[in-house]
Each structure stands twice: as structure tokens, then as C-alpha cells.
Simulated scan of single mutants.
Amino acid sequence: MRIYKFEEIQSWQKAKELTIGVYTNFSDNKDYGFKDQIQRASVSVMNNIAEGFESQTNKMFIRYLYIAKGSCGEVRSMLYLAKEFNYISDEQFEKLSNLSLDATRLISGFIKKLNE
């Protein structure tokens, strides 16, 4: 199946869902450094997928996908801190962590497919 625009990519769609979740759950957080970092990391996931797709070469796209995958890990790592600092509930942690893991799996699968 040919993809014509990055918005069709499942991992980008999942990353967008993650970003919306992060922004929603941390909108009132007064730890501005923390809030800024987790928001930037979540945006990085979806933006790197989009930027890599627009690069129009598989080699560059794969590089951007690895960066996006790394940002997923950063978001998940920060979610553990958010839970420890009581910035989010256990339920919010589970939801956002699962979105991050889903995005990571989709990105990994996409990298594998592009490497075939």
C-alpha cells in the first residue's frame, strides 16, 4: 500500500493521540520545566515522522523514525516521574504509557518494513 501523505501513517496518528493526551493531562501543571519537556518530547514524535516522510528517501525517513522512537522513550520515562511526583494518576499514566508503547511498536514495524 502506497502512502501519499504523512497523515495516513498509523504511527503518526498514534503519536498525535499521544501528544493530545500529554497536552491535555499537563495543561494545568505548574512545573513549567517538566511540562515543557514532556510536551516537546511528545510533539517530537509526530513531527519527526512527518519530517522523515517528507524527506522522500527511505534512508532519511528511517533516521527520523529512530529519532521519533527515541522521543517515545523520553515521554515514557517522564511519565514515570510524573506518576512519582503525583502530577498524573495511575490511570492517566497507564493510558499515556500505553499510547507511547503503541506508537513505539508502530514505528518499529514501519522501520522494519522500510528496511525490507
Rank of each mutant, 00 (worst) to 15 (best):
N29P: 01
L81N: 01
Q37R: 14
K112Y: 12
Y87C: 00
R105M: 04
K113S: 10
T19G: 09
Y87Q: 03
F61R: 03
G70V: 04
E91L: 13
I107K: 06
S71P: 01
I38G: 04
G73W: 03
L65F: 09
K59E: 14
R105V: 11
D31V: 10
Q56E: 14
S71G: 02
A15K: 14
L18N: 02
E94W: 02
K83H: 14
K30Q: 12
N115Y: 01
I107C: 01
K69T: 05
A41W: 14
S11K: 13
I62D: 09
F110C: 00
Y66D: 03
N25P: 00
Q39W: 12
Q13L: 10
D36Q: 15
L101R: 14
Y64L: 03
D90H: 07
E116V: 08
Q37W: 03
K69A: 05
Y66P: 00
S42D: 09
Y64P: 04
M1R: 13
E54C: 03
N86V: 06
R76L: 10
S44C: 05
L101P: 00
Q10E: 15
Y64N: 05
E54S: 02
Q56A: 09
A103S: 15
T57L: 07
I88H: 10
L106A: 05
I9W: 02
S55N: 03
N25A: 15
R76Q: 15
L18T: 08
G33Q: 10
S11H: 11
S11Y: 09
V45G: 00
G109S: 07
R76T: 09
T19V: 06
K95G: 00
V22W: 06
E7W: 10
K59V: 07
S27E: 15
N115C: 03
K35R: 15
Q13H: 10
A82Y: 07
R105N: 14
G73M: 01
N48W: 09
S71F: 03
I67A: 02
A82W: 11
E74V: 08
I111N: 00
A103N: 06
F26Q: 11
F93G: 01
S27T: 08
K35S: 12
K95V: 07
L101F: 10
F93T: 06
V45Q: 03
D28G: 09
E116D: 15
E94Y: 08
I20W: 13
K59Q: 13
D102W: 13
S97I: 05
K83R: 15
S97M: 08
S27A: 09
L65T: 12
N115D: 09
F53D: 07
S42G: 06
Y80F: 12
I3C: 04
N29G: 00
E54V: 04
Y64K: 10
Q37S: 03
L99D: 04
I111T: 06
A68F: 07
